[in-house]
Design a protein around this nucleic acid. Structure first.
Lengths: 135, 135
DNA sequence: TTGCCCTTAGACAACCCGTCTTTACAATGG
DNA sequence: CCATTGTAAAGACGGGTTGTCTAAGGGCAA
């Protein structure tokens, strides 16, 4: 039996990152950003990756103009959620709260150690705490 | 370039799940649990998967007895943490707190909708809240 | 020894993924 | 209009993974 195809591969993700940042892009822009060599085959590679992303509904292709315009068909948060869920499916019987426990504890210990937790992360924790308490 | 090998594959994970549950097992026990047909090749398959898990340090093989005994070389929580971190690396520049936000919000909305959140999950959220407040 | 099960090494097909080649097509400049 | 340039589309390809399977050797008990 073959391995399960991962939703979005690393090379595909690199393209999505640019699209998330730029909002939209042509093939040329993507090649310039990701494959500075700009070989002929680099361009074909990006086309292929875009095609696969399109078939996964992770990219929307606007064929009305020339050249085609590409836009993200999925938001970063959605992809995060999808990966979290698949981790939960594989390791927690589909339940998300064990992930929460696994996430909160390391962040807390880092807080205590005065370690690598940035002020923004601390702020984020606080606001989430507030939100939880408001319920 | 080939895809990145996933740390633990699905078939390997099935073995780990049994080891986590039982604490230790022989090849025979694992085959009985996972491959009821008990073919000759099923046994070889499990051996192969165990060997790969061993080389990844995810399983410890006790060769002192006969037949060999296999124990988990990694805990479920460690694997969860590893996958969370790799999701964070791919999508959040390595920072874990965006995952937290992505996790808390769905759980909250499910709470509000009175939906599919189990009482245990609610309880877990409460205790984590307590823990947060104690800091 | 005989028989049985376990161990070990390796072959194998199916598949994935990034790359590359090739051919056809749209637009622009002369 | 033709030639050039850049894009679109289809597909081949190699190296790698993953689960399965075959084959041969080794430990244990009767």
């Amino acid at each position: 039996m073959p391995r399960k195809a991962q939703d979005v591969t690393d090379a595909e993700l690199a393209i999505l990152q640019v699209l998330w940042e730029e909002g939209e892009a042509t093939v040329r822009m993507l090649v310039d950003r990701l494959y500075p060599t700009r070989t002929t085959s680099d361009l074909a590679t990006v086309q292929k990756l875009l095609k696969r992303l399109e078939s996964k509904q992770c990219v929307v292709r606007d064929r009305s103009g020339w050249p085609h315009l590409f836009r993200p068909g999925i938001q970063r948060d959605d992809l995060i959620t999808r990966r979290l869920q698949s981790t939960a499916d594989a390791l927690c019987g589909g339940s998300l709260s064990p992930l929460l426990a696994n996430l909160v504890n390391p962040l807390l210990t880092n807080l205590v150690k005065g370690g690598r937790v940035s002020p923004e992360e601390i702020q984020q924790l606080r606001s989430m705490l507030d939100e939880l308490e408001r319920e």
